[in-house]
Computed example of a mutant assay.
Amino acid sequence: MAANTVISFVFGAFIGVIFYSTVDAQRSPTISYISQEQIKDIGSTVELHCSVQYAQDYPVLWVKVDSQGSYVPISTGSSLIIYDSRFALRYDQASSTYTLQIKDIQETDAGTYQCQIILTISNKITAGVELQVRRPPFISDNSTRSIVVSENEAVELECYAGGYPPPRISWRRENNAILPTGGSIYRGNKLKIKQIHKEDRGTYYCVAENGVGRGARRNIAVEVEFKPVVTAPRPRLGQALQYDMDLECHVEAYPPPAITWHKDGIQLSNNQHYSISHFATADEFTDTTIRVITIEKRQYGQYMCKAANKLGSDEAYVNLFETVIPVCPPACGQARYYSGVAAVTASEFIILSALLVLFFRNFNPQH
């Protein structure tokens, strides 16, 4: 009986080994664990883990998949197959875990890393982990740089940015001026202005922020073309005969207009009677002045300053009338008047004239 028991035990054990060996051989290789998505800063270190089962007889690879879908093998088994000192590979036999370490992470390291068990030429088991690398925002080249539009047109400013995490886009105006859409801040990739006005011209800021670094900003120049607006700050001016007088107009227009002065339907030009000057204070603003030199009777009357560009024209009027007392300026120190052997300046003459007027008013019997 004892001998039969021993034989039965040995036979059972032999059958068990054969059974479990057969079952083990029939089990398919699997990837039991893969690291979750990793988000790292530039210059840091990351470790990616891949645990496998029943893969002793099959090649196990780490492969990087770039944004174009190309595959770059990094390791096979427990050996690296790329020469890069930033990469290292460890294999833990107890847990059948392959650990890929990347030091001093660069932007180009971002992508999907696949752990692969190669079964046949056309068959493999794959699991992937995505490595995201934090990157400060940058404004993309397909964003608006500058724009020139006519008044009352619809306008669309576009701003796109890269970086990780994906940046948030906001819009502002110079000096925090109110946006045409209302408010001082607008969020979104596109700033749409249904009908732009000349007051909307200026510098707009596209700002991209994602919490990494200081963010990125692009200045966008918005030029609005509009017809001239002409104003006369002093529409009535008086001056005495034989003195000079400056007539002024303020012009607002873009593009810069052609500016002319007229009297009695005739365009005036620089000569011994008139001197015309233009002073551009900005792209859209111009001050224009005509000096009437040594006024004669025929030079009194209405003057017109006119400005015209491709979008239209406008004009303003200044009336020059005669006075008894010279107006200073511009008459101050303009000329010298002789009485006998004594010479007096214009300013002295003005004072004398005023005194004479007062004298005659006080002593005139009619007053």
Rank of each mutant, 00 (worst) to 15 (best):
G215Y: 07
A232E: 04
W261P: 04
T231G: 06
P235M: 09
R201N: 10
V229K: 09
C249K: 00
Q195G: 04
A216V: 06
Y254P: 00
A216D: 15
C249S: 05
D200Y: 01
V207S: 06
R214E: 14
R217Y: 03
H250W: 06
L247Q: 04
A221F: 05
P257S: 11
P235N: 14
R236W: 01
L241A: 02
P235V: 12
G215F: 07
A258T: 15
Y205E: 10
V212T: 09
Q242T: 04
R201M: 12
G265A: 11
G215T: 10
H197M: 09
A208T: 08
K192H: 07
H197I: 00
Q239I: 03
E223M: 10
Q242P: 00
D200I: 10
Y205M: 06
A221K: 11
Y254W: 12
Y254C: 00
L237W: 00
D246N: 15
V229T: 11
I220M: 02
I196M: 05
I259V: 14
Y254D: 01
A253D: 08
R236K: 13
N219I: 03
K263M: 14
V251A: 07
P235E: 07
A240R: 01
V230W: 01
Y204S: 03
I259P: 05
A232Q: 05
G215N: 07
F226W: 06
R201S: 15
R236G: 02
E248H: 09
A240G: 02
Y204C: 02
K198F: 06
T260R: 13
P257I: 05
R217L: 12
G211V: 12
V212A: 08
T260I: 13
N210K: 06
W261V: 11
K263N: 04
V212H: 06
A216F: 00
T203E: 07
Q239C: 08
Y205V: 01
V222L: 15
A216W: 00
N219E: 15
D264I: 03
P255N: 07
L241Q: 03
G202C: 06
L237G: 01
G211N: 09
G265W: 04
A258S: 14
R234Q: 14
L237R: 05
M245R: 15
K227W: 03
V222M: 14
P235L: 11
Y243L: 01
E223L: 13
V207L: 12
R201H: 05
C249E: 03
I259H: 07
Q195R: 15
N210W: 09
L237N: 01
L191F: 11
C206Q: 04
